[in-house]
Nucleic acid binder design. Structure first.
Lengths: 345, 345
DNA sequence: AAAAACGGCTTAATCGTTTAAACAAAAAAT
DNA sequence: ATTTTTTGTTTAAACGATTAAGCCGTTTTT
């Protein structure tokens, strides 16, 4: 039972494939196909349950209506959700998305890029990982349309859609300070990715603007790959420092999860022993005995806009760069509630 | 800067495209291509950074090396993770995966199916949703290879890879009983999906085998779509029943998350006020103030095996059905620790 | 010496579409 | 009555690969 093709319909109708193609693509008007025959063709197509072969279409047209979505880490619920949004938005526009996770490895990202290029995706949406600058340059050179999502490289001119991480982190810091905390630590990934640097920078400026002297021992940078062990060490150290912190910002969801587990092991009470603000939304933060204050990034908007940008780029490739920074929102919960001492002070 | 094709290489080398194809596909021996020319072709290919066009290959060969993965609910971390496993395993075998989530809607599932069929995927791996039997029949009729994953229809002969839900649920019940709980409730989705029925059946049999009389008020079935509100009502009711339960089994991860939030609101202590066992693994269960006992399904094996089955089916379509039920494992934690009273009794 | 085999290459059909160009017949304009 | 226009249709090339079949010298076999 082979799939029915244009040819089959043409044969049954006793016409050429051209007519069938015209009719089934709604071009009967422009190409002046006869009423009767057009009707007949549609009937037969329905009867034979004709489904066009996308491969052939794409080969001919050079368009696959497929978007490659390369994500730095799909196990992160933030990215998983953003992937969903992208998929939905793309589907609405008749595009299919092929998702790949590079698990924060630039090499894997190269592989994915090549696989997807071979599959002739029309363009890419990319959550870049560290060390993938060359890939971005490659895409630019090859003139392959793409939009960077959530993370971008300030030194490379590209389209991008991202969060204002500096501001988000600054806000997180201010919030803690206003809640009465003054010795505030931050845990981030050891990385020279811009979004991560911005988060640290925002935090530092929040301290500075409130005349709190930043101390090196308050900044803990851990490696993504060995997060499990390094987080524990980092927590131990940051709590042992002579100026013991009374609050912490976690620059990512993954860090927060890991740290909270350890904090539980240590029997530390949140927020009385340690207040917490974290990046990244997830159900988990509702479920923790003390609901975690978190920075909510505009997930839906980020995803939607990235698709929008890309589709526009596909339509009119020569329009200028589109770049946007969106504001995150701090959701204040119990884990950073005003320090009792601060109320009277 | 067009992509380089076989033709380009052929022109540069001054030969026909046939030779280029032979060489680049490693068929130079069988097709007796001259040493020198073969070498030259390879050089030029490298120089022009030739990347074969997958569309053309697929159109010609009828194979896309693409698998369609249709998932009932990708926002469930269990399925998200299984998707990752499937993707990885497929990639290892040179296949690309196109993932789609139908969000538990049979209609959306139909759409996805059609989109992917048009894209000529070689086969499907499907986590079915309720009411999608007709789709399974359709695939069978059309002779499109597929494997059902995690959920299957006992009345339809298909390949499938799933968990032994009956056993898993039975074990969960036994575990609670042995820990001293005797009034055990269960919350499940209102659904006639087999996997859900099996979970309820296993639970009931655990009670029966321990001479505990099952009470209708202990079984709470809620609708997936209106879960948020129904879960609360269900919890209220199950706690108000004359024989108030002292333990609960949650048949899915989503139910557990929802219920735990409400249980927190009610200031119920786990496990002293209510012991808990849940299906589905996730970091969350480590993070809850009282680590949740859960049924760990063999996620990696499920995913891997489903790919294996499908690839075998693609190779030798006429081999018989492959069906496998895998055993889950109960991970006992604090949320179901032995009841103090039970220790002395 | 003729026939067969081999080595090295090209030709051309094919996969399923799209679409510009050509064509023929009918209708309209001159 | 001829030319032009319009209408409805077919032809065939193209997308980029694969591959059976063909071709033509050279070498080997008989």
């Amino acid at each position: 039972m082979k799939k029915t093709s244009l040819k089959d319909i043409a044969q049954q109708a006793g016409v050429s494939t051209a007519l069938v193609s015209y009719v089934l693509n709604g071009k009967e008007k422009e190409t002046r196909v006869g009423e009767a025959i057009a009707h007949k063709i549609r009937e037969i197509a329905k009867e034979l349950n004709y489904q066009p072969n996308h491969l052939a279409k794409s080969l001919r047209s050079g368009k696959t209506y497929t978007i490659g979505l390369i994500i730095a880490d799909i196990s992160n619920p933030f990215f998983a959700n953003i992937a969903r949004v992208v998929e939905d938005e793309a589907k609405k526009n008749g595009y299919t998305v092929i998702i790949g996770s590079c698990d924060e490895h630039a090499e894997k990202s190269w592989d994915l890029l090549n696989v997807l290029i071979n599959r002739q995706v029309d363009g890419f949406i990319i959550v870049s990982c560290e060390g993938s600058e060359s890939q971005v340059h490659y895409l630019k050179e090859r003139n392959i349309p793409f939009v960077l999502l959530d993370r971008h490289f300030p030194e490379i001119q590209t389209d991008f859609v991202a969060t204002n991480n500096y501001k988000a982190s600054y806000d997180a810091g201010i919030h803690l300070i206003q809640s009465g905390y003054s010795r505030i630590g931050i845990m981030a990934y050891k990385s020279n990715m811009y979004h991560m640097e911005e988060r640290v920078r925002g935090y530092k400026h929040a301290l500075r603007d409130n005349h709190i002297e930043f101390r090196d021992s308050w900044l803990k940078e851990v490696h993504f790959e060995s997060m499990d062990s390094e987080v524990k060490t980092a927590i131990d150290e940051i709590l042992a420092s002579e100026q013991r912190v009374d609050a912490m910002i976690f620059a990512t969801y993954g860090l927060a999860i890991n740290a909270l587990k350890y904090i539980n092991e240590l029997r530390l009470k949140v927020p009385s022993d340690l207040a917490i603000v974290s990046f990244g939304q997830a159900e988990v933060f509702d479920l923790y005995y003390c609901p975690i204050t978190y920075v909510r990034q505009p997930l839906e908007m980020l995803g939607k806009t990235s698709v929008e940008f890309l589709l526009e780029k596909l339509k009119t490739p020569d329009e200028g760069m589109k770049q946007i920074l969106m504001e995150a929102k701090l959701i204040a919960r119990e884990s950073s509630k005003p320090k009792p001492a601060a109320l009277s002070g």
